[in-house]
Nucleic acid binder design. Structure first.
Length: 322
DNA sequence: AAGGCGTGGAA
DNA sequence: TTTCCAAGCCT
């Protein structure tokens, strides 16, 4: 659990500026949310399982993609039980188009854990939730609030961006990234209106997604721009260069991983497909000098539970796991 | 603590 | 065409 140091939390919740801003901001943003908030399927769900699926799908994934896949996945796997007992291959196939396939594996592992260790009930506490596979600080807090209605703050990339712009002084980056993260959570906690935690969290995320966007924020449409030191002063999003990823032919390894799984989704039948067939399907101009590299990728996918390696008569066959 | 991990539409 | 990015998590 992300827990702010008490001293920081206390100083924040007692800061005159924080208190004044909170009094000003909370009612305005909640009013804006009632009028402009998005109507999303998971916002009216009561079943913990169905909310959980939405939160996992939304990790680093665009709304439009989730809106498309969410109902299909729930129809195929309506409960912890059906998901836990399904063949892994079916879960991976249902995840097609979502990206980050590890999430599908962890979600199924989570379903199994909930079924067998928690009697089919999703844990309530942040601590227990965060022990589950695929659930980190954000998702644990989101589930506590959105499923169990416990007044916890949530900090995702949207909330983080909004708060940094609203409190540039309090959240000025330090030397340590972990310290920066602690401060954001502490501030989110200090701002939280406990009686309206659910709507407040959703409102902050909607504001970040619709108005206070990373590039070209619409400050003129922002309900709290009056209280925002950064209003109309944001010229451009950060242009931080990312380090080049390891791969082949300027294509990152994870792209090849994705291609391998995508190929197996469609071409796997019965015995599976041979190593060489996968090799040709996945990389243009595949040669034997790529063999060591490709074997490494496949080993990694096997470790992640995303495929199964079978050896018959000296040949290697690949399939999605049972 | 930094780097690995997909996908496909938009800029 | 290329680049960038979107409700994070894990090691």
């Amino acid at each position: 659990m992300i827990s702010a140091k008490p001293s920081i939390t206390k100083s924040l919740s007692h800061s005159p500026r924080i208190l004044q801003l909170k009094k000003h901001i909370v009612p305005r943003l909640l009013r804006w949310y009632r009028r402009n908030g998005r109507e999303l399927p998971w916002r009216k769900e009561r079943d913990p399982y169905r909310v959980l699926v939405s939160e996992i799908m939304l990790q680093q994934t665009q709304m439009s993609r989730v809106l498309q896949k969410y109902p299909l996945f729930l129809k195929r796997f309506p409960s912890f039980q059906t998901l836990a007992r399904a063949p892994r291959s079916q879960v991976i196939r249902a995840w097609q188009g979502m990206g980050y396939n590890n999430r599908a594996v962890r979600l199924q592992q989570l379903a199994s854990t909930v079924l067998h260790q928690y009697r089919g009930r999703l844990p309530t506490s942040i601590l227990e939730l965060q022990k589950l596979p695929g659930i980190g600080p954000y998702t644990a807090h989101a589930l506590a609030c959105f499923v169990h209605k416990v007044p916890h703050p949530v900090v995702d990339t949207n909330v983080s961006r909004v708060l940094k712009r609203l409190f540039p002084r309090e959240l000025k980056p330090t030397q340590r990234v972990s310290e920066d993260i602690n401060r954001i959570w502490a501030l989110a906690h200090a701002l939280l209106p406990h009686r309206h935690a659910y709507d407040w969290n959703q409102a902050l995320m909607d504001l970040g997604a619709l108005v206070c966007t990373a590039a070209n924020p619409q400050c003129s449409k922002c309900p709290i721009s009056q209280a925002c030191p950064s209003a109309h002063k944001i010229t451009r999003g950060r242009v931080r260069r990312k380090k080049q990823e390891r791969g082949r032919d300027a294509i990152p390894n994870r792209i090849y991983r994705g291609r391998i799984i995508e190929f197996l989704r469609h071409r796997t039948n019965g015995r599976g497909v041979t190593f060489s067939l996968v090799a040709c399907a996945v990389k243009a101009n595949y040669t034997t000098k790529d063999e060591r590299w490709l074997r490494g990728l496949i080993r990694g996918l096997e470790r992640d539970g995303l495929l199964t390696i079978r050896k018959k008569k000296g040949n290697v066959f690949l399939t999605l796991p049972d």
